[in-house]
């Protein structure tokens, strides 16, 4: 019962989407059903994301209540969640500080704290990625040498000074990198990976619909 009912629901909701694909969305009831089901999934998906936030809140709250190691930092996380979420939920009719519009607390916190922190976090990866490159980029064999050459050429090609240096070696070199490495070899490999991954995703979808794959149910 606890497994069969969800498997049947998964099969039926998936079949609606598959069958709807073969019918005209404006002339068949299936098309209308497809649109409704899509908005249903958006709503349930939204609640799922909220579940994640509630889970983070719960875990941190328990840690603060039980005075676990670093509970002070977890308290900061809780305060930050509330500081961002509560003003966003309160209707903007009451004050322009509420809601998610321009000049709201939510907007201010995003622009002056969240966005700079996000940019800094990603910028920090420049150091770690360079350190990883220093260790990984050794021309030990053919494959590593190809990786090293391609990365060096692309890094040079991406900056104006490097592009001038490459053109100094041969005037057509920057264009050749664009055509043959990015638009040729790179595109071919990306296509191969996309085709392989898409076939894998389609096979996995079929397994879910047929109830063979049940790991999402905790089985």
């Amino acid at each position: 019962m606890r497994t069969i009912v969800p498997v049947i629901i998964a099969f039926l909701s998936g079949m609606v989407m598959i069958l709807a694909f073969f019918f005209d969305p404006e002339k068949s009831i299936l098309g209308e059903l497809e649109q409704n089901v899509l908005s249903w999934v958006t709503i349930v998906g939204g609640f799922t994301l909220l579940l994640g936030v509630v889970s983070i809140f719960r875990v941190n709250l328990i840690a603060v209540k039980r005075r676990h190691d670093g509970w002070g930092y977890k308290l900061v996380t809780l305060i930050s969640i509330l500081a961002m979420a509560i003003p966003a939920i309160i209707p903007s009719k009451l004050s322009p500080l509420f809601g998610t519009g321009t000049d709201s607390i939510y907007d201010w916190l995003f622009n002056y704290l969240d966005a700079p922190m996000m940019a800094t976090m990603f910028a920090m990866l420049a150091f770690y990625i360079s350190s990883a490159a220093f260790r990984a980029f050794r021309a030990r064999n053919t494959e590593a040498t190809l990786l090293l050459i391609a990365a060096t050429l692309v890094m040079l090609w991406r900056v104006p000074m490097g592009e001038i240096a490459l053109a100094y070696i041969h005037p057509d070199l920057p264009q050749a990198i664009n055509t043959y490495i990015m638009g040729g070899i790179n595109m071919a490999v990306q296509r191969g990976i996309i085709i392989g991954a898409a076939l894998g995703a389609a096979a996995m979808s079929l397994r879910i619909l047929l109830g063979i794959e049940r790991t999402y149910l905790g089985k």
């Binding site: 909220l50 930050s80 969640i81």
Partner: peptide, 13 residues
């Protein structure tokens, strides 16, 4: 921790 909290709160809004 501020970043983690604000990012979670951002999704709530």
């Amino acid at each position: 921790h501020i970043f983690a909290g604000l990012s979670a709160g951002y999704y709530v809004g």
